[in-house]
């Protein structure tokens, strides 16, 4: 398999954001009650990650990384400590754009998101995408693939959880477990399942 293909699969399954790294769990749990909202969230996450990771890559490599200003005669200038503020700015703008698009074209999904839409601005999985990109020194193409892959992984996981939770509407659960309680248990079980992907990657 080509490098980019396997990067995509690794990002989506082996390093699955909610189920392996436990990032972005708040939105993951809150918006997995109904499949439509979950699919909406999955698409939104893929979009936001797919845009912000490569964009942040360009900003980081072009302006902030050590040596980025070498062309201007300042090879020692290191602005990488500004990366958090720059990344958050880009993410905030992307979420704002997403909000406008949903409001305009998909009002039902917009309504389903409620307060969780603006909260995507500080969603840990999204920021983690950009931070991993820096840490792992991805190229632009890799950043794009990594962003899309993580987003797809998130989408698959949240759609699966929503599907199971819908089925549970017919289950006779003990009162204390209904709602969030069983969602946590399910997340744990799904996470065990996803751990097998890590085994596959390690065996290679």
């Amino acid at each position: 398999m080509t490098g980019l293909g396997s990067l995509f699969l690794t990002a989506a399954f082996v390093d699955n954001m909610p189920l392996t790294l436990f990032l972005g769990l708040c939105t993951f749990l809150a918006l997995s009650k109904r499949p439509e909202a979950a699919v909406g969230l999955g698409v939104a996450m893929t979009g936001v990650l797919g845009v912000t990771v490569p964009l942040n890559h360009l900003i980081y490599q072009g302006l902030l990384a050590p040596g980025a200003w070498a062309w201007a005669g300042m090879p020692d200038l290191d602005l990488s400590y500004l990366s958090l503020i720059a990344f958050i700015g880009v993410i905030a703008a992307a979420v704002q754009l997403l909000e406008m698009i949903l409001d305009r074209f998909f009002p039902a999904i917009h309504a389903a998101f409620g307060v969780f839409l603006p909260l995507l601005t500080v969603q840990c999985a999204i920021l983690a995408g950009s931070l991993f990109m820096v840490e792992r020194d991805y190229t632009l193409a890799q950043s794009l693939v990594f962003g899309l892959g993580s987003g797809t992984g998130f989408a698959v996981a949240v759609a699966m959880l929503a599907a199971i939770r819908t089925r549970l509407a017919y289950a006779d659960l003990p009162a204390g477990l209904r709602g969030l309680g069983i969602a946590f248990v399910l997340t744990g079980l799904m996470s065990l399942g996803f751990a097998s992907f890590a085994q596959m990657a390690a065996a290679q």
Binding site: Q96, L97, M100
Partner: peptide, 26 residues
């Protein structure tokens, strides 16, 4: 100076971009 400039230009750029998109989308 350069650090501040980079952040200011970035934020202004994002804002202008959003304003443009907003006028088309909303």
């Amino acid at each position: 100076l350069i650090g501040s400039l980079v952040i200011v230009v970035l934020v202004v750029g994002l804002t202008v971009g959003l304003l443009l998109l907003r006028s088309r989308l909303v």
